[in-house]
Simulated scan of single mutants.
Amino acid sequence: MSGERATTTVRIERVVTSGVFELDGGSWEVENNVWLIGDDSEVLVIDAAHTAAPIIDAVAGRRVVGIVCTHGHNDHVTVAPQLSASLHAPIMLNPDDDPLWQMTHPGVAYWPLADGDRIEVAGTAVEVLHTPGHSPGSVCLYLPATGDLFSGDTLFCGGPGATGRSFSDFPTIIASIRDRLLTLPPATRVHTGHGDGTLVGTEAPDLAAWIERGH
């Protein structure tokens, strides 16, 4: 675990877990970023990837406001029910991703997330942005007070998330990125679901190239 950003009231921490992403009959070894937003007393967990123990260790006994799944792919929700039970916290997911959720956790309930929802943690408002494309229910989380964006698999360093599999659509993810993410301040720090982070202002000039590339 490594601290990514600190302010006087809120800190952001990252846990990296490894496992397998499975969809459409294929499987891929992946490393996922699990993000924690909080302070010494409470924390919000973003994504529940692969292995519960390192996430629980990072929580370190703090009250967990919720476990937000940025989308329903199995590598982002693997241990969501286990974390929910261990940490006494609700699972949160946009219901447009319910078909994907049911592939991994059939019949398990979650709290429905909607565009414009606000989650309060450590005195800071976390805004939910519905950004479909990588999946129908993909969401990003934005902290206006600190200038941080958690983009799941919607936006990466170097372009949009993958759209070549079931439940995904390239024009839709481009619209989400153009209209919801690249409109944020250029200095906004982007914390991604996999790999290294970036800045909104770093990615914005490449939008036309992504569209021309077509994937």
Rank of each mutant, 00 (worst) to 15 (best):
M1D: 07
G3R: 08
E4M: 13
E4D: 12
R5N: 03
A6D: 00
A6W: 02
T9W: 04
I12E: 03
V15Q: 00
V15G: 00
G19E: 09
V20I: 15
E22A: 15
L23V: 15
E31V: 11
W35C: 09
L36F: 04
E42K: 00
E42F: 02
V45D: 04
V45E: 03
I46Q: 13
D47Q: 15
A48L: 09
A48D: 09
A49W: 09
T51P: 05
A53L: 14
A53N: 09
P54T: 09
A58F: 02
A58G: 04
A60F: 04
G61D: 04
V64E: 02
V64F: 06
G66E: 05
T70R: 10
V77G: 03
V77N: 05
T78V: 09
S86T: 15
S86E: 15
M92C: 13
L93G: 05
N94H: 15
P95N: 09
D97P: 11
D98K: 15
W101H: 11
H105T: 10
G107K: 11
G107T: 13
W111L: 14
L113G: 03
G116R: 08
I119V: 10
E120N: 11
T124P: 01
A125T: 15
L129G: 02
T131W: 02
A145T: 14
A145G: 13
T146R: 01
D153P: 08
F156V: 14
G164I: 11
S166C: 07
I173K: 06
I177F: 00
T183F: 00
L184A: 05
T188Y: 00
R189E: 07
H194F: 03
T198D: 04
L199E: 05
L199D: 01
V200A: 03
E203T: 10
L207I: 10
A209Y: 03
I211Q: 09
I211R: 00
I211V: 15
